[in-house]
Design a protein around this nucleic acid. Structure first.
Lengths: 348, 348
DNA sequence: TTGAAAGCGTTACCAA
DNA sequence: TTGGTAACGCTTTCAA
């Protein structure tokens, strides 16, 4: 029975309920409920109910509705780490898009830890969201399978290996990689570093294989630099990259699979006294808003976050509302070359 | 009665309820409820209930709990515009902090429109959050008063003029402005531009007055450049600023009340062919993560977002859980001078 | 088209 | 300490 803290209990003016509206118009609550939702009712009833509702200032109680119907009109958004800039923006955009569609966003952030992802998922599920949008940390986890059977799930970035029934919005990495390698090859780079996250590659981001293939195709040699995903601690990442990119026989370009990595590389370059792009070309793979400011040498791949958001939210809500099947949508890359990204250094 | 889309209805294995646990241990649901919450029960009862609950895999249904108790264990987070980088990060940090305290975050974004702020507020209120964290677009709106009477509200950035009962986390702008002006004066700047949002100044950000006072104190002349808050359209902002900062008798420094503005100024400077900081010193007022990358001349004021988040979440939850009074917390500025911000240009 | 009644899964009051 | 029971406010089935 609603108690509420002493401080706030009195201020709440006991909002009108369905019963109040029903009393006002002399109808049964059920009738009012249907009328308010436009499910049925004669034109007359409908009008009277509407009038009474607005007169009383009736607002539905979504919690009661959720309990009774089993649907909360809320969508859970679970993201791997909002410390990563692109994911942070993605999360914000998803929330905005959901709101525009009349759904609330229940957001959670696994903060880089797969085990936290699992725990959060359980909690989110308890909130009975109508659907789930997730940028998975561990797309191979077994839990996805059960979850995807229970409610519509759309994964962003990686297909959920164990949950074929889930939808996905994935990136055409093959083309993206090809564009980047072509670009770097044209500039004359022969030896590049590829900065990528430590976590295992996935079905949709088989980064290592793609790198190997492209390197072969372009006749390049590649240093793989594995880096912990974005954390609160930018310095550690910078240190790590400075070590990897410095040294005598260093690469002439760095291809970063995340713009957060690219920023760390730019910082590392600065510490090493390397000019970008004079001494080191840097390519990001996400195109966050201010990539253009981050460095004159920062070329990026733009995946069109708007398209990602539309595809994800669109198909999720279609599944929720109209039971439409989920599918995999592939996003195409567009290379954004900013300023002069080359020329390739002339030293051997 | 739970219907669920045809596709997902079957997959849901009908989770155990309190009743199921009660049946298992041969106690009343009420007893189990109390035991599970550790509110009462003998050691024996408690143990048996725990065991049965884990055995059955019982998970509480938060929606039913919310309906019965009137508390949702959810906190609404309403932000003026997640297109602004600082606010976007703030929102992400708030959500993370809330999660760490066992609360879910219901996030909404007014996207720069005060009228949307009002509408969203109404919808959020319907979700019966236990509290509200808000970076208000319009701190003068009348609605805050009623809202703050109904549930704990903590405003970030501006005190809510009409709602004295609400808490606040505000920035010590007087000191922040003084630090910036001192810094610029030391570098020898005599004429600066101040880039600030169009919306009316507020009790806690009486920007214009502070600017006037500081300018007088430091013997500077000031151009006020009013700019629409961050939008999706960075180009427009850049155009606007390029106009304001170009011209024959242009200022030698720009003090931007938002880092988003600072970025726009950097873009404008680039378009105008101005060197930063050679031709134009730029000072931001927020210190977003990658400010150090955005330009060598970008000095910022760091308000410690972590402190803001702690203060806001801390006092809100104290009010929610322990009925503690809300208060106004003031955050102190710290000037972060990066690289060489001067020297002041030598032309008169 | 309308309504009565049975939930939905908890919490909280009050009596035992 | 425990348990019965009445909310909480809505949705949905089923009968009128």
């Amino acid at each position: 029975m609603a108690v509420g803290g002493a401080t706030y209990a009195h201020g709440v003016p006991k909002r009108p309920t369905l019963q109040d509206v029903a009393d006002a118009v002399g109808l049964a609550p059920a009738t009012v409920s249907y009328a308010l939702r436009g499910e049925r009712g004669s034109a007359d009833t409908l009008a009277r109910v509407q009038a009474a509702a607005t007169a009383l200032g009736y607002q539905i109680n979504p919690i009661a509705a959720a309990l009774a119907s089993g649907r909360s009109r809320t969508v859970a958004v679970l993201c791997g780490s909002t410390r990563d800039l692109w994911q942070q923006s993605l999360t914000a955009d998803l929330a905005r898009a959901l709101l525009a569609e009349g759904r609330h966003a229940l957001v959670a952030d696994a903060d880089g830890h797969p085990e936290r992802e699992e725990a959060l998922l359980a909690k989110l599920r308890d909130q009975r969201p109508d659907g789930l949008l997730v940028a998975p940390l561990d797309p191979f986890a077994a839990q996805w399978e059960e979850l995807a059977r229970q409610l519509p799930v759309v994964a962003i970035g990686d297909r959920l290996a164990e949950a074929p029934s889930a939808g996905a919005v994935v990136f055409d990495n093959a083309r993206g990689f090809a564009q980047v390698f072509d670009h770097l090859a044209e500039l004359g780079h022969r030896r590049i570093a590829v900065v990528l996250p430590e976590r295992p590659s996935t079905p949709d981001r088989p980064a290592e294989r793609l790198v190997a293939r492209e390197a072969r195709r372009c006749g390049m040699s590649v240093d793989l630099v594995r880096t912990a995903p974005a954390t609160a601690d930018a310095d550690t990442m910078t240190d790590h990259l400075a070590t990897a990119l410095g040294g005598r026989d260093r690469p002439t370009a760095a291809f970063c699979l995340t713009d957060s990595f690219a920023f760390a590389v730019l910082r590392a370059a600065r510490r090493l006294g390397l000019e970008v792009p004079g001494d080191l070309s840097v390519v990001g793979f996400e195109d966050v808003e201010f990539a253009d400011l981050a460095g004159p040498g920062l070329t990026t791949v733009d995946w069109g976050r708007g398209a990602v958001v539309d595809a994800a939210v669109g198909q999720l809500l279609a599944a929720v509302d109209d039971d439409e099947p989920l599918r995999t949508v592939t996003i195409s890359p567009r290379l954004v070359v900013r300023g002069t990204t080359g020329p390739a250094p002339s030293r051997s």
